[in-house]
């Protein structure tokens, strides 16, 4: 596993994704959820992309982005914008959203990343409020009233449109996770980790810290934008208060931290567990309780298990009797 090449990993990821694709309808049948299984799975997969994207910046370089919801919203509103101009296929919208998200990440980073990490975090927090202000005041994309995005009734090759969206999100998961894993094992990953551990020592070791941080913010922003691009077609009616909502901001931080931020596995595990839990929970409890649960888990994990579930599992294996600690 450690030495598996990127292409090999991508292949395995595709096989796993294909298995998920064939497996999910069965779970739907067992639970009696029908097409709802696609809605639930889509949401979980969307969180996998968001969590992985957040982790590229937050987990690898240690710069905390509080504005995930804003980057996600940028992706969704890119789609709304182009939908109003000229309907484009979703894969193209995903690319456009990635470009816009990446550019905003780059801009944010350029203005604040020369300073201490906390300033970047605060700026992202403030940015979420302001982007929301901009969207609310921008009538072309619906303003505060929101925007309807009517999805086509059918789509070639797929049983239903929701299945199509599910497959797109599955593909985004494969791309995001593969990219994250590749970064981790490349020179870029070593540079990111050096920045996270000690920026001054990283510079003294020849690591161009500002450039690397900008790469991380741009990549992270791009993937968050991508995660948002199909969303208008998924939800049908889009409101600023919804896409800038609490769930996205808190989940994309909580999921990697609960899973473990050091590797690509953490956000994947965290998002699948927490996302599934929430999907099951929304059936029974309100969304506010949902956010409360995530917030409590987040605080619990940073205090008790700062290396997340992955760290907990690693510790279990490391502490074999007789082995040197």
């Amino acid at each position: 596993m450690r030495t598996m090449s990127t292409w090999m990993f991508a292949l395995v990821a595709c096989v796993v994704a294909a298995a998920v694709f064939f497996f999910v309808p069965f779970i739907g049948k067992i639970l009696g959820w029908g097409d709802y299984i696609y809605i639930a799975s889509y949401t979980v997969l969307q969180y996998v992309v968001l969590a992985t994207a957040w982790n590229i910046l937050g987990g690898y370089t240690g710069y905390v982005n509080f504005g995930s919801a804003a980057f996600f919203a940028v992706g969704t509103y890119t789609t709304v914008f182009f939908h109003k101009l000229y309907p484009l296929p979703i894969p193209i919208l995903v690319v456009l959203a990635a470009v816009v998200g990446g550019l905003i990440g780059l801009g944010m980073g350029y203005l604040t990343l020369r300073l201490r990490g906390a300033f970047f975090s605060i700026a992202t927090l403030a940015m979420a409020v302001v982007l929301q202000t901009l969207i609310v005041n921008w009538d072309f994309v619906g303003g505060s009233r929101g925007a309807y995005v009517i999805r086509p009734a059918s789509i070639v090759l797929f049983d239903s449109y929701i299945q199509y969206l599910f497959v797109i999100m599955l593909a985004l998961v494969v791309i995001a996770v593969t990219v994250a894993r590749t970064i981790e094992r490349s020179a870029l990953g070593y540079g990111f980790a050096a920045i996270r551990d000690d920026e001054l020592a990283a510079e003294a070791s020849g690591v161009p810290t500002l450039k690397l941080k900008l790469i991380a913010t741009a990549l992270s922003g791009a993937f968050m934008g991508m995660a948002g691009a199909p969303f208008p077609y998924f939800i049908g009616f889009l409101q600023p208060s919804g896409v800038f909502g609490l769930e996205y901001a808190v989940n994309s931080i909580a999921m990697p931290i609960i899973g473990g931020t050091a590797t690509w596995i953490g956000p994947l595990v965290g998002a699948i567990l927490l996302g599934t839990l929430q999907q099951v929970a929304t059936v029974t409890i309100s969304s506010a309780v949902n956010v409360l649960m995530v917030g409590l888990l987040l605080v619990f994990f940073v205090i008790v298990a700062p290396n997340g579930l992955v760290g907990v599992v690693q510790n279990l294996f490391r502490k074999k009797p007789g082995a040197p600690s």
Partner: peptide, 8 residues
Amino acid sequence: LPRPFFSM
């Protein structure tokens, strides 16, 4: 003061 990369 030594400043190693502690996570590596």
